[in-house]
Design a protein around this nucleic acid. Structure first.
Length: 430
DNA sequence: CAGCCAGTAAACAGCT
DNA sequence: GAGCTGTTTACTGGCT
């Protein structure tokens, strides 16, 4: 029996099966292999070839090789740099991946800018400059898990104490600066509950002071990455006409609003491309982003959703409801210790199932499996139920995403654009 | 309607 | 003792 993957969060009914106080970490040790207990510093335990794992490493998971890097580098070199995409490039220059304060440019807009020289970036701003200020108060469309992941991954040592995680989030998502303190509780809650995050062995991390360092479990990094990659990034236009008030039961679901946006470019293109932009630029262009000042530039993919409310009044600190749906439609809900998630996880992401033919499997089924992001805690060394890292799949997705970017940029990229096709569309269309 | 998921609040214990 | 950190439980709301 393997330990099934667990959902990212969610209520944990009953004692956490994996993180019982005082035993969870030890249990992790017992898993052996990739399963690390009170983990050592990532640098210490990472493969020698990758002393400082990056997000890109995560694409391939613990077994990542240079292929993904190559792909991403290729993307960066051949597309992003050839086609200055405004936000991306500007952000790179300023050391900011996102810039909430800046004008939001969605990938779609960026693509338009890239493919149309007659369109100046400044004309592509989202709703003018006033919007930009409003965006300061907007909720980032990331789950706390992804925020934490980004914070940790963008830290020099790939590990951060909670306090610095707070700081990073606040720094890059000013929304949280004005938000009630409850979001910190959520962060801690996530750190504790989410298997993707682990405490670094205190002896190696922080001999003195409060708290521990937290790092991303390399075993789960691919899934966090996948969640990030598959995060549904709404088209820019969707936020030009947001409901005046926060989403409510009476207002149409956000995702329905988004779908109404007419654009020849599929949202799936946007999602993949935006994710690629993020993933590609994050670790390499901004290796020390945590040190950077200023908010994250959400521009490259319009990450900021206008909550239309004051954070202090709006206690839903994070993802909008519509984006919550993302995991089910392809993004990776991350493991948690919720028994319910436990059950759900047991349904999903079994490598065996991945390999077994499933005649009735549709896209939803596929994405559902992928969505259950975290692998079972099967230890490869034990070989009982080997978790096949989704490396190949991710690799293909990356290629597709690259093709999508080319597609967005108006390039004809036979192989890639051909590769991008029903699969990614199916993948993203739920 | 049930189930799942993410977010939030709160209680509690341990540590500095 | 205060404050922070980490864990756990419970609940809510949105979505499928």
């Amino acid at each position: 029996m393997h330990e099934p993957p667990l959902g990212l969060m969610g209520p944990s009914i009953g004692m956490s099966p994996d993180k019982k106080a005082g035993t969870a970490q030890e249990e992790r040790v017992a898993r052996g292999g990739l399963a690390l207990g009170p983990v050592t510093l990532p640098e210490a335990r990472s493969a020698a070839a990758s002393p400082c794992p990056t997000s890109l490493d995560g694409v391939g998971g613990a077994n990542s090789d240079d292929e993904e890097l190559t792909n991403l580098n290729w993307l960066n070199e051949n597309l992003l740099q050839k086609f200055p995409l405004g936000g991306v490039e500007a952000s790179a220059a300023s050391g900011s991946l996102f810039d909430i304060e800046g004008e939001s440019r969605s990938p779609r807009v960026l693509a338009s800018a890239a493919s149309s020289s007659s369109v100046s970036p400044s004309s592509l701003l989202l709703g003018g400059h006033d919007k930009g200020k409003d965006l300061l108060k907007s909720k980032p469309p990331f789950s706390f898990s992804l925020l934490i992941y980004m914070a940790i991954e963008q830290s020099p040592g790939k590990s951060l104490p909670v306090k610095d995680i707070y700081g990073w989030i606040q720094k890059h998502f000013p929304y949280f600066s004005n938000a009630p303190a409850g979001w910190k509780n959520s962060v801690r809650h996530n750190l504790s509950l989410n298997k993707c995050f682990r405490k670094v062995d205190k002896s190696l991390a922080k001999p003195s002071g409060k708290g521990s360092l937290w790092c991303v479990d390399p075993e789960h990094r691919p899934y966090l990455l996948q969640a990030l990659k598959k995060q549904h990034f709404p088209p820019v236009n969707a936020f030009r006409t947001p409901p005046a008030s926060p989403p409510s039961a009476s207002s149409p679901p956000r995702h329905l609003v988004l779908r109404e946006q007419t654009c020849p470019i599929k949202d799936s293109d946007i999602d993949a491309a935006a994710a690629m932009m993020l993933l590609n630029s994050a670790p390499e262009l901004h290796a020390d982003r945590y040190e950077q000042d200023g908010p994250i530039d959400l521009s490259c993919r319009n990450l900021v959703l206008d909550s239309g409310g004051d954070p202090k009044q709006d206690h839903t600190y994070s993802s909008l409801p519509s984006l919550r749906r993302v995991p089910r439609s392809g993004s990776a809900p991350l493991p948690s210790h919720s028994p319910r998630a436990h059950r759900a996880g047991s349904e999903g992401f079994h490598s065996d199932e991945d390999s077994e033919p499933d005649a009735g499997e549709d896209g939803a089924a596929v994405t559902k499996r992928v969505g259950h992001s975290c692998p079972p805690r099967a230890t490869p060394t034990l070989g009982k139920r080997v978790w096949h890292e989704p490396r190949v799949e991710v690799d293909e997705e990356l290629k597709e995403a690259a093709g999508s970017l080319l597609h967005l940029a108006g390039l004809s990229s036979e192989g890639e654009t051909t590769c991008y096709s029903a699969k990614s569309a199916k993948h993203n269309r739920k």
